[in-house]
Amino acid sequence: MTNSTTPLPRLYPGMNLGETDPDTHEAAEELVFGFWVFLMSDAVLFALLFAVYETMVNSTAGGPGAAQLFHLKPTLIETLVLLASSFTFGMASLIMKFKQHVVLLQIALIGTLILGVSFLGFEISDFAKLTRQGAVPQLSGFLSSFYVLVSTHFLHVLSGCIWILVMLIQLSVFGLDETVKTRLLRLGIFWHFLDIVWIFIFTFVYLLGLL
């Protein structure tokens, strides 16, 4: 460490701005913590949807089960796209912290948005394929719980994409001020949280279903 100033403590989850913008760093503590409380309640929601899915996974009512319906390749593509979008959001956070450059930040966010929207596109094509095979939500308890779980995550990613779009507009209107920065901090932990939920969806729904 060549840095002579005392390091600022980490105050909240996600990217901390202490080293480059102490004022926003202080202001963000309560806001990010409050958002983290919401995310944990969201985690409870997802955990219970997973529990419902586990109790329903064999209730196929004579219809097709996980092994007949799911495929490894589209799941792998969706996983890699979402993981890449988590990484590009990390790059956006680094640009916000160290470069404070609006256009570069917007490019990183647009990259994340493109990956997020392609993830949604792959999922829509998955759902469409299932529907063509006759695997609709009302067919069995298994399919009902599958659609509830996966489309809840889908709606979260969709709201994340809308949020990115709103932040892109706010960045060009307001520039990189304190409010925009704290909003981007919260968007960042939201986006990384969605990728964590997806780890459990591809593991418990797709991989263990195909095993």
Binding site: P9, P13, F33, S86, H192, I196
Partner: peptide, 17 residues
């Protein structure tokens, strides 16, 4: 993901989160 993307680890245990 917690450690490297959300920057949460067990070393700084004074944090409320």
């Amino acid at each position: 993901h917690f450690r490297y993307f959300l920057h949460i680890d067990l070393e700084k245990s004074h944090r409320d989160d």
